[in-house]
Simulated scan of single mutants.
Amino acid sequence: MDRRGGGVILCFDIGGTAIKTAEAWPDAPVRPTGRIPTPAHDFDAFVAALRGAIAAASAPPSRLAFSLAGIVDGAGVATAANIPCLTGRHVRRDLEAALNRPVVIANDADCFALAEAVEGAGRGHDVVFGVILGTGVGGGVVVRGHLINEGGGFAGEWGHGPVLRDPALPIIRCGCGQTGCLDALASARGVERIDAHLNGPARASEAIVAAWAAGETGAGRTIALWLDILSGPLAMVSNLLGPGIIAVGGGLSNTPALIAALDVAVRARRLSPSAHPLIVPAQCRVEPGLIGAAALGRSAAF
């Protein structure tokens, strides 16, 4: 292995359904190389799939970099709901032993944030907060090109923790086991829950946002409440981190007017309101997991 950081880094974006792969060379764009099914329930089969990707690389990789749809805690233990064979494992240690190469790993939200910091909306900013507003509410924090939690842990997971106690809102038990989490009412599913509670009958978040954009009164009530729920906690996180930019990905980021409305609401609630946009749609719309994994691998190599 070239300890000066040379050689190819083989990148993996691990999801519950598919494993995407890419090669990252020093000073060259990330090159996607394919995808294979994820053997989610069998660790030996999972390792065999990775070995196949390593064997197919254009050169022997100097290290392996992973974006994982799950959490790796500070002790290195993974929790991956859709990849049960990794849950409970010291995943970096086990993969290094099985694959005989250095491994770096971060969750998919962290890799998204890192991609935005190095190649997306966060370029040129010391502190970048990458926010996911989609099936869930998540995020990652990058400071001067490095994940704030490079050693593992939950930094950036601002969607969990009991913050909602309005008696007018439905009490939703979050997937993390708590009630009153942003994840339960500020995600795309949360928009649907709010809308059904206010207006009924149930409709998809895409339809609600489209109706809001078209001026429908009911959808307007839904989005106004969604903005109120989300903007206060996001302003507080912004005060804590002091990001130069907050890049938003996930399904709800696909409507620029919605993100612009969130930006206005958050800037009005910050300690120091800004005249310039703070919250913007993500720019790395294709393969941010692989781009982030590559950045993680390059950082470790040097």
Rank of each mutant, 00 (worst) to 15 (best):
R173D: 11
H276P: 01
A186T: 00
A196T: 14
A78F: 10
A265H: 09
A294W: 11
C181V: 02
R89N: 04
P84N: 09
I54K: 09
A113H: 06
S238N: 15
F302D: 14
A247I: 00
G177R: 13
L86W: 10
P288C: 08
A294M: 10
I71G: 00
T17V: 11
C181K: 08
S231A: 15
L95H: 02
W158F: 15
G153V: 11
A69E: 09
G145L: 01
C176I: 10
A247S: 15
G159N: 09
A81P: 02
R270N: 04
D166E: 11
I83F: 09
N82Y: 10
A257I: 02
G134W: 05
S253G: 06
R285F: 04
P233D: 12
H90E: 13
S238I: 05
L296W: 11
G200S: 15
A48Q: 14
P162Q: 12
S67K: 02
F66N: 03
M1V: 05
V72D: 07
A261D: 08
I172G: 12
L68A: 07
A261R: 06
G175P: 06
L64H: 05
G153D: 14
D110F: 01
D13S: 07
G244I: 01
F46K: 13
A22I: 01
V72T: 08
A24I: 00
I83K: 12
H197D: 12
D27K: 12
A78W: 10
I172F: 08
L258V: 03
R51W: 03
V142Q: 11
A40Y: 04
G244T: 05
I71M: 15
S67P: 00
